[in-house]
Design a binder for these strands. Structure first.
Lengths: 188, 188
DNA sequence: CCAAGAAGCTAATACCATTAGCTTCTACCG
DNA sequence: CGGTAGAAGCTAATGGTATTAGCTTCTTGG
C-alpha cells in the first residue's frame, strides 16, 4: 500500500481548493480526507484539527491576497492605485469565495508568518493613503474605512444582500469613487 | 408531566438570547433544547430544523434593527441623521453579537415578513440620502456604500481585525464623517 | 365528555471531529 | 548492506450534533 505522501502544506493547499468549490463553512475534514484519498484520522498527522486547518488556511489566503494587493498597487498612485487595489481585493474574493472568509481570522500574535502576511496586506492599503497626504492616526482611520467598505461590500454581495436590480459592478465603482472623494476631503 | 408551553415565537426568542450569549455559530439545537427544558427532538414541533431556526432568527433580528434604525433617524436630517443611524447600527451589533450575523441571510422573496423587515431597514438608510439630494441610482449606490462601510466595520471589529492601538470608536466617528463628505460630494 | 390534534417523549440513524493504539513504510546511520 | 527509529498511514472507539419515526399524553373544541 503506497503512501499518499502528504505534507501540511499539501493538505492546506487542497483545503483551499475544496473550500473554493464547496464553501468555507462546508470545508470538512471528512471531505478533505476523501479528496486526498486518505482516511480521516490520517489528516491529524499534518494538522492538529479543524481549528488548526482554519488557521493555516487563513495564513495561506492572507499571504495570497497580500501579494495581489501589493502587485495591484505597484506603479500606481492616487485614485488610480485606489481603484486598482479595491478591484484586486474584490477580484480575489470572487475568484476564491472559500478562501476569502478564512482571512477574517485575526492573526495569532505568536505566529510571525501570519502577522507578516496581514501586515503586508494592510500595508498595501496604507501605502495608497500617502498619495492623499494622510499619515499617522488619519492614515490608520482611512485604512480602516477602506477595509470596512470593501470587505463589507464583498460580504453583502456574496450573501445576496443587494436585492435591487441596480448593477452591482457600477455600485462598486461608485463606492470607490466616493472613497476617493472622502480621502481627498479628509478632516481630522 | 406538565408541558413546556412552547411556541415557535418563544423558541426563536430564546434562540436569540442564547445566540447573544454564546455566539451565532454556537447556537445549537441541543443547547437551545436544554435551555428550554425540553428534549432536542421536541423543538421540531416548532421549527423545521436548524436552517429554519436561522431563517426565523434572521426575521426577528432584521425587524429589531429596522425598528432601531428608524427610531434613530426620526426627527433628524443630514449628517445628524447619518451619525445617529450609523451609531444605532453599530450599537445593535454590539448589544446583540449573536443576533447580528443572522441578519446577513438574504430574505426569501416568498417570505413577506422577512422582505418587509429588510425593506424597512434599508429604507431607513435610503431616507437619509434624500438630505444629500441623492435619488434614483445614486441613492441606491450610496445606500450600498453606507451598508458596506458600517457592516464591514462591525464585522472587522468583532473579528478583532483592527490590531493597532488607535481607538476604534474614534475611527468609526471618522468613517461616518468621511461618509458625510462622500455623500456631499457625490458624483454620478 | 370524548375525540382529534398538538406537544412532548424515546429510540434509531447518520455525520463529523477527536483520541488511542496499532502497523508499515522509509530513510538514515553504523 | 542491514537494522532501527520515526513518520505516515490505518482501524476502532467515543462523544457531539441533526434528523426522522413512531409512540404517549395533554388539551381543547364540539
Amino acid at each position: 500500500m503506497p503512501r499518499a505522501g502528504l505534507t501540511p502544506a499539501a493538505v492546506v493547499r487542497e483545503a483551499a481548493v475544496l473550500a473554493d468549490e464547496v464553501g468555507y463553512d462546508r470545508l470538512t475534514l471528512a471531505a478533505l480526507a476523501g479528496r486526498l484519498g486518505v482516511a480521516l484520522p490520517s489528516l491529524y498527522k499534518h494538522v492538529k484539527g479543524v481549528d488548526d486547518l482554519h488557521r493555516k488556511l487563513a495564513v495561506l489566503a492572507t499571504a495570497e491576497i497580500a501579494t495581489e494587493l501589493t502587485a495591484a498597487a505597484a506603479g500606481r498612485a492616487g485614485d488610480d492605485a485606489l481603484r486598482a487595489v479595491a478591484t484586486a481585493y474584490r477580484g480575489y474574493a470572487r475568484r476564491h469565495p472559500g478562501r476569502y472568509p478564512a482571512i477574517q481570522r485575526a492573526p495569532d500574535p505568536a505566529d510571525p508568518e501570519h502577522v507578516a502576511a496581514a501586515e503586508r496586506a494592510v500595508g498595501a492599503i496604507y501605502a495608497i493613503l500617502r498619495g492623499y497626504d494622510l499619515t499617522g492616526d488619519a492614515a490608520v482611520d482611512a485604512t480602516r474605512m477602506f477595509r470596512a467598505a470593501v470587505h463589507g461590500f464583498i460580504t453583502l454581495e456574496a450573501a445576496g444582500g443587494f436585492g435591487l436590480p441596480r448593477d452591482v459592478d457600477r455600485s462598486f465603482d461608485q463606492m470607490v469613487a466616493a472613497l476617493d472623494t472622502a480621502f481627498r476631503g479628509w478632516r481630522s
